[in-house]
């Protein structure tokens, strides 16, 4: 069994407007030392997935089914109490907005010290020394002085580093970073991505990086999971997803994105329409109202939900188009347009 395994995870929220199927049958595996990138547009269920793994929906109105196995322990059926003890020690999270994750009235140091002492029975002095160490490790200058600053006294980039220090202070084996650089400027984003890459190698933890930015996932990920409407629609190695993607939605994302590493294309190729509501998910293939190839699936697109099937070597695709046709479309109709001058 892998270090982390999700099996048909479903997270549904009953609301006044109807049942929101935020995550609807998600399955994947992740080993220690590996990085999984989860990409998708807003509302595709990325954050709800990460909160489910951390057990943060427990006690709320979410209806959860399926399995989450972390190092041999099943977490969906585990008590909230038990999952709380795993949080911080075994798994930790880095959020987009460090201010919302940190307490404004306590110094950064006090928060790391407290987090550390929950799981380690050491004196305050020892924990403080550890906190200074961690702040130094994440590149905060003069950590012995900055440890007594309040979160608002840090710049955005420094705050994000402090949160990473806090998340890593207990040496978690699973780290989930949800849009960790979305609020940062590009030069600071680059620093943080470098930092995460280095720390992950050093700690050999499993890392899940969640983002809407394909460039960011490409920088860090071994494997990539593309989400649409609460489901995985394509999964594969970073090479699979960027070099030989087979799902029309993935093609659409790539065509929408201007790229600095290629000659400038005359025109972007957007996906038509807008992402679906998760209350009234379109019938059949949830992507069919926006799909340029919907007409080629012989009327199945809006009646039958396509299964997530292996196309080759662990590369999974959820689409009714036959494999050979998908490959031909990518080679002849999509790829040339992405590379034009």
């Amino acid at each position: 069994m892998s270090f982390l395994e999700l099996n048909d995870l479903r997270v549904h929220f009953p609301t006044d407007d109807g049942l929101v199927k935020s995550v609807d049958g998600l399955t994947f595996k992740l080993e220690r030392g590996k990085t999984l990138g989860i990409v998708g547009e807003s509302g595709s269920g990325k954050s709800v997935t990460s909160l489910a793994i951390l057990g943060l929906h427990k006690g709320g109105r979410a209806m959860i089914s399926g399995e989450i196995w972390l190092d041999g322990e099943e977490l969906v059926s585990a008590s909230a109490e038990h999952v709380r003890t795993l949080r911080g020690k075994k798994m930790a999270m880095i959020f987009q907005d460090p201010l919302s994750a940190m307490h404004p009235y306590y110094t950064v140091g006090a928060q790391i010290v407290e987090a550390y002492r929950i799981h380690h029975h050491v004196s305050k002095a020892v924990a403080r020394k550890h906190a200074i160490d961690m702040l130094g490790r994440v590149g905060i200058p003069q950590p012995e002085r900055r440890i007594d600053s309040y979160p608002h006294e840090f710049s955005g980039g420094m705050r994000q580093r402090a949160m990473i220090a806090m998340a890593l202070s207990c040496d978690p084996e699973l780290l989930i970073a949800d849009e960790p650089t979305t609020a940062l400027d590009v030069t600071v984003q680059a620093q943080i991505l470098d930092l995460m890459r280095d720390l992950q190698q050093e700690f050999n933890s499993a890392l899940i990086i969640i983002t809407h930015d394909l460039g960011v996932v490409a920088e860090l990920s071994d494997d990539i999971l593309v989400m649409y409407g609460g489901k995985c629609i394509e999964y594969g190695t970073a090479e699979d997803i960027f070099e030989r993607p087979e799902h029309p939605y993935t093609w659409g994302l790539l065509g929408s994105m201007p790229r600095l590493d290629r000659a400038r294309t005359e025109r972007l190729m957007p996906i038509k329409g807008t992402p679906p509501s998760l209350i009234n998910v379109p019938s059949g293939c949830a992507f069919h109202p926006r799909c340029a190839f919907e007409g080629r699936t012989g009327g199945k697109a809006n009646t039958q939900v396509p299964e997530l099937l292996e196309t080759e070597g662990g590369h999974l695709v959820r689409c009714h188009l036959p494999r050979e046709e998908r490959r031909a479309i990518w080679e002849n109709e999509i790829k040339p347009n992405l590379e034009s001058v």
């Binding site: 710049s155 590009v186 680059a190 460039g215 490409a218």
Partner: peptide, 27 residues
């Protein structure tokens, strides 16, 4: 130059060989 070098690009083949200029600190 530094700004351009900081932009993450979805090129997995060349991600390890890209030459990076990393600015220190914030604005």
């Amino acid at each position: 130059t530094a700004l351009l070098s900081a932009v993450p690009v979805p090129d997995v083949k060349r991600r390890t060989e890209r030459e990076r200029i990393r600015l220190q600190g914030d604005v």
